[in-house]
């Protein structure tokens, strides 16, 4: 360590002179500061200032002609009225029910299917085929919901879609998919899991492939069958990754994939009740009612609950199993 300090001092003669002053330190680190500058500026503009701009949630916001700061200053405070308005609207429970309900379902199903797929993929005999499967399964993950909305339309279009072709072909009655909420929770869940499974299983798959073969050797000698091997070797090994995923998912329980809930149901009025989540609600509050204060309040609530849940989940995990905690 001492050696390093001396070399630094040799390279930067100026640093020795101004060693202990604040500006001396800045000068000494000028290259590193230059390297972090663009990123730091980005964080200030697109993270720290927007975080502060959340005070709009406590204001009756209106635009001022004199710019953003003037709008913020001139809009009168209204305490927690925006939150009250949001809590008392009939939308509140609907939005919470949908967001949390879909997320709990996604959390459970993603867990199950990601681990299931990772385990069976790790046990396949043919590596070439495995590669083909994995590549295909990642394809939907790389596409946007804007594109997938058209994929879905090809199946669900009431007059041209392939599903109604099949249904009427078998003598059934065509379903007006985009006006009939019955099937939508299922459609949303299938699409969400389907799109993410390739990605979600990769982390587990990589972990399983990293397990030392000696464990299997030992299990074979002890006469363990396949299921016992999976239960006693594979599952304990992926537990830390699963825990990490759980913490992150719990932190995101109030978040939703905007594209899935906004574009896939094609904004059909009959489907709003079953597909409205925090994010679509906030966007619609901005674009349709222009109620900035209330929309910000809803978003702030979403963020705060998310952060608190993340910290609690992490705290619990750290108590039980310090190595699995996120931080």
């Amino acid at each position: 360590m001492d050696e390093v300090t001396t070399t630094v001092a040799q390279v930067h003669p100026l640093a020795r002179k101004k060693k202990n002053s604040f500006f001396g330190h800045l000068w000494e680190n000028r290259v590193f500061l230059l390297l972090v500058a663009p990123g730091a500026l980005f964080l200030i503009l697109f993270f720290y200032i927007p975080v502060l701009a959340n005070i709009v949630a406590f204001k009756n916001f209106s635009y001022s002609d004199n710019g953003f700061i003037a709008s913020l200053m001139q809009s009168p405070w209204n305490g927690i009225d925006n939150f009250k308005f949001f809590f008392q609207s009939s939308d509140f429970w609907l939005v919470v029910r949908n967001t949390v309900g879909y997320n709990m379902t996604f959390l459970l199903l993603n867990f199950f299917f990601a681990i299931f797929f990772a385990v069976i993929m790790s046990q396949l005999r043919n590596r070439k085929l495995l590669k083909v499967y994995q590549t295909s399964m990642l394809f939907p993950y790389f596409l946007s919901w804007a594109i997938l909305a058209y994929f879905v339309l090809a199946f669900l279009s009431p007059d041209k879609g392939i599903l109604n072709h099949i249904i009427t072909g078998m003598g059934g009655k065509a379903i007006d998919w985009y006006n009939d909420p019955t099937w939508w929770p299922l459609i949303i869940i299938i699409l969400g899991v389907w799109k993410g499974i390739g990605y979600n299983s990769i982390l587990y798959f990589a972990t399983i492939m990293g397990i030392d073969p000696a464990y299997y050797d030992a299990a074979m000698i002890d006469g363990a069958n396949k299921w016992q091997q999976i239960k006693h070797i594979v599952l304990p090994h992926i537990l830390p990754v699963a825990t990490l995923m759980l913490i992150l998912n719990i932190g995101g329980i109030f978040r939703s994939d905007f594209g899935l809930f906004y574009l896939i149901p094609r904004q059909s009025p009959s489907l709003i009740n079953i597909t409205q989540t925090f994010d679509t609600y906030i966007y619609r509050a901005l674009s349709q009612t222009n109620n900035i204060g209330m929309a910000t309040a809803a978003g702030l609530l979403q963020s705060i609950v998310g952060t608190i849940l993340l910290l609690i989940a992490n705290w619990i995990v750290r108590k039980a199993e310090p190595d699995s905690a996120l931080f």
């Binding site: 972090v36 697109f46 993270f47 929309a295 910000t296």
Partner: peptide
């Protein structure tokens, strides 16, 4: 050897803990 390493690490990591929200970002 970057003296402010810890500060700038935290400066970035904090943004993963909290989402500033769609509307405040839109306003900025």
């Amino acid at each position: 050897e970057f003296r402010y390493r810890r500060f700038f690490t935290m400066f970035a990591l904090v943004s993963m803990l909290f989402a500033p929200g769609m509307i405040p970002t839109y306003l900025v």
